[in-house]
Each structure stands twice: as structure tokens, then as C-alpha cells.
């Protein structure tokens, strides 16, 4: 079975429909599936429900889909740094389901692991837990959160072999791993596709079973939100 597609446009073919739920990897602009986001934008699909930790920034990452009004609802933990998002949200044009970051990650992990719901301490006593089932375990109160199963997952990896075994690089792993597992179909874009046998099986972060379609997204011009440096000490 051939998982490698020529480009992002062909990789999303037959998978997109209005009103669908998409889980996307990335944290800020780090490790975002930018080629696939471009392809989703170009397809014109709309009414999207997107589970992603952040919403990109103006015209970068998922910010592109916001600009074209293709998103109906975001399931996110933090959406700062995005003027268009703010405008649409305040105008009531965009729904947001604020979800604590760890709860969002676990909702994806659980959804991908066949667990429809789980109890967590996170958010108990706050508005996040309002209207949700509570249960006491060993004297502590927990709230029920639902697993997320998305129609499609889009993720960004570093290296993959031709079967889809995949490795991430540094903090670009973030939500890409849990997001990959919770999609009915997962498309991964990577910086390099290597022949089978060239990755150490002990060092695979995401086993190929989770990757249905694969594209080479390189070359990338990776963006930095806040560049912070230190001075080199004088010799």
C-alpha cells in the first residue's frame, strides 16, 4: 500500500467535507502542518471544527483558515496573538471551546486510544467543569471529559520512512503525536522521507499504523514567534 502522496492537495483529496472535525498538531507556530493547512484552505471546505492547542497567528498556521472564514469552532487552550481571531470571536462569528491544555492533549490521546471519556481533577470548581458529570474517587472530586475522535488529523513530523514510521524533532513533537492518533484518517507532512530500514525501530515516536497518508513538505521556512537570545561572553 502506497502512503506517499505527491503533494498536500492530492493527500487531502476525498477526505474533506463541510462541518467536519479536524485535529491539528503544533504549539504556537512550532511543528504546525503548514502545507496541509494550505491545502485545506485551497479546497474551500467550510464550517470546520478544529481541535488545536492554538489558532495560529494572523495569516500563519490556522490563522489562514480563520481569515477565509472556514472555521466554525475552535477547541483550544490558548488563542492569544491573533487579531483576526479576536475580531471574529468578539463579533460572535467564531465559537471557541476553551479546554485546558492537558485536558485537550488527553482528550486527543483518549480518543485515539478508544477511551470515550476520562475523569480529571483539572478544571474542577471552574467554569470549564460546569454542566459536566462529577465523581469522587478516594475523597477527591474529578470531572468527566470526553475523548476526541476527529474525521481527519493533520500533523507535522521531522523524518518518516516510506511506511509512515515517524520521528519528531525537539519541542515540535507537542500535540502532533496525540493529534495523529485521534483522527479516523491521519495525514503527516514531514521534512524528510527516508527508505525503510534507515530509522532505528527503537527510536520511532509515532508507529506507522497511525499514519495513513504521507507527504514531503520540504523545503520549510520555519517561523519563530518570539526570538530570544543571549550575548556570547567576551573571550
Amino acid at each position: 500500500m502506497q502512503k506517499i502522496y505527491a503533494n498536500a492537495e492530492s493527500a487531502v483529496e476525498g477526505l474533506l467535507f463541510d462541518g467536519m472535525t479536524i485535529a491539528a498538531g503544533g504549539f504556537g507556530l512550532c511543528g504546525i502542518p503548514e502545507r496541509l493547512i494550505d491545502a485545506i484552505q485551497a479546497s474551500g471546505v467550510k464550517g470546520l471544527i478544529i481541535a488545536s492547542n492554538n489558532a495560529g497567528i494572523d495569516n500563519e498556521g490556522l490563522g489562514k483558515l480563520l481569515r477565509t472564514r472556514q472555521v466554525k469552532r475552535m477547541i483550544s487552550s490558548y488563542v492569544g496573538e491573533n487579531k483576526e481571531f479576536e475580531r471574529q470571536f468578539l463579533a460572535g462569528e467564531l465559537e471557541v471551546e476553551f479546554t485546558p491544555q492537558g485536558t485537550l492533549a488527553e482528550r486527543m490521546r483518549a480518543g485515539g486510544a478508544g477511551i470515550p471519556g476520562f475523569y480529571t481533577k483539572t478544571g474542577v470548581g471552574t467554569q470549564v467543569a460546569e454542566g459536566k458529570e462529577h465523581k469522587e474517587f478516594d475523597g477527591e472530586t474529578y470531572v468527566l471529559e470526553r475523548g476526541i475522535v476527529a474525521d481527519l488529523s493533520v500533523i507535522k513530523g521531522w523524518k518518516a520512512d516510506e511506511t509512515g514510521n515517524l520521528m519528531f524533532r525537539k519541542t515540535a513533537r507537542n500535540f502532533n503525536l496525540p493529534a495523529a492518533t485521534c483522527g479516523k484518517v491521519c495525514i503527516a507532512e514531514v521534512e524528510e522521507i527516508v527508505p525503510v530500514g534507515s530509522l532505528d525501530p527503537d527510536c520511532i515516536h509515532l508507529p506507522s499504523i497511525y499514519v495513513n497518508r504521507l507527504i514531503l513538505g520540504a523545503p520549510y521556512e520555519k517561523k519563530i514567534e518570539f526570538k530570544t537570545v543571549r550575548e556570547r561572553e567576551a573571550a
Binding site: 487552550s77 488563542v79 492569544g80 476553551f98 485546558p100 491544555q101
Partner: peptide
Amino acid sequence: KGMGGAMD
């Protein structure tokens, strides 16, 4: 802007 990881 959202709670990020603070609640967790």
C-alpha cells in the same frame, strides 16, 4: 486568550 496549561 485562554487558560493554556494553568488549570492543569
